[in-house]
């Protein structure tokens, strides 16, 4: 796929007229490879067809039988569509389903009634995410097979971490907050996790060891948050961001201590791989006020800043103990 208009799109909706509208808008904007399905069952048949491959999937939420959210979850369980952009087609009356849709793995949403400008903007975003994902997948493959100098991996890349279950794409996490808007996003706190020493490991270790280290941290964070309702994403630069339900708040210092304890068994491995150990810093929970003009995604940056500003732990020198 070279250009945005080369995307192979599957649109699923039980309303024939809506599919006609989509088809009209697709073809008028140059998208020639668009396929329609009138039900979840028909969509799954096409998605399971080994001779067909889709780059982007549009799903209506309310359909008889299996609805769009269930279908989204089923599609995400299919390895070849695990990371394909899935855009949910929603009306304003269905905002209550948006949480469920993102939870089921949706990447973005388009509001009905639809217009050509919004459709094209969302498809452009989907195309950009496909391009970025392909670059990152290629990097991940190179990481396994080549040396540091030959890999174009950047420290800032929000690279995929396949061993961390249910990790949300960074773009999808941002889309989710934008979808919620400030009022509903206020139910979540953003908490940043900054890995001290990650840049040094990146510079000195083999990319595979660097990725292993990031995954160790990701798995530990998941474990540390398991009693909470949360969404977790890797944002690049050795940093994670979690959205944590305010009904199940965290104490950052307590969580930081527990995470450092969880990473203890990995210390020797990290030291051997890069001559460097890492520490995790947990920032303060951040959220926008209810009445604000700030972007709903602003708490993400604030949370990461907070994590970067956590004081660096200084080991107590043995000699100091003599004075106590």
């Amino acid at each position: 796929m070279q250009a945005q208009q080369d995307m192979r799109i599957l649109a699923v909706d039980d309303e024939v007229i809506f599919l006609d509208i989509l088809y009209t808008l697709f073809t008028s904007q140059g998208y020639q490879h668009n396929v329609r399905a009138h039900s979840a069952a028909e969509a799954l048949e096409k998605l399971r067809d080994p001779d067909q491959q889709f780059d982007c999937i549009l799903l209506d939420i309310q359909m008889p039988g299996m609805n769009g959210i269930e279908l989204c979850k089923t599609i995400r369980g299919m390895p070849k569509y695990a990371a394909t952009p899935i855009l949910m087609l929603t009306s304003l009356s269905e905002r209550v389903y948006i949480d469920q849709a993102f939870g089921a793995g949706a990447s973005d949403y388009i509001t009905k009634p639809i217009n050509d400008v919004e459709l094209n903007a969302r498809l452009r975003a989907a195309f950009n995410s496909i391009t970025e994902r392909k670059r990152i997948e290629a990097l991940a493959w190179q990481v396994q097979t080549t040396s540091v100098d030959q890999v174009g991996l950047n420290f800032s890349d929000p690279i995929a971490l396949p061993e961390v279950d249910d990790l949300m794409g960074f773009l999808a996490l941002q889309n989710y907050l934008l979808t919620l808007g400030n009022l509903r996003a206020n139910a979540w706190s953003a908490v940043g996790f900054h890995i001290l020493g990650a840049a040094q490991v990146f510079a000195n270790a083999h990319p595979r060891d660097y990725l292993d280290m990031i995954q160790d941290v990701g798995i530990s964070i998941r474990e540390g948050l398991k009693t909470r309702r949360f969404l977790l994403s890797y944002s690049g630069n050795g940093e994670f961001i979690a959205l944590i339900d305010k009904k199940t708040p965290i104490d950052p210092e307590d969580l930081q201590d527990r995470l450092r304890g969880m990473l203890e068994p990995f210390r020797e491995f990290h030291l051997a791989a890069s001559g460097q150990t890492v520490e995790i810093c947990v920032g303060k929970p951040c959220s926008n006020g209810l009445l604000t003009f700030a972007s709903p995604t602003a708490p993400i940056e604030a949370a990461l800043r907070s994590a970067r500003n956590v004081p660096i732990p200084v080991p107590v020198p043995a000699a100091a103990e003599q004075f106590q």
Binding site: E15, I17, F18, I21, P64, S91, K112, N115
Partner: peptide, 14 residues
């Protein structure tokens, strides 16, 4: 409600 929902989703575009 479901049928009205479908009309709501297409009528304004038309």
């Amino acid at each position: 409600a479901m049928m009205a929902h479908k009309i709501r989703g297409v009528a304004p575009t038309l």
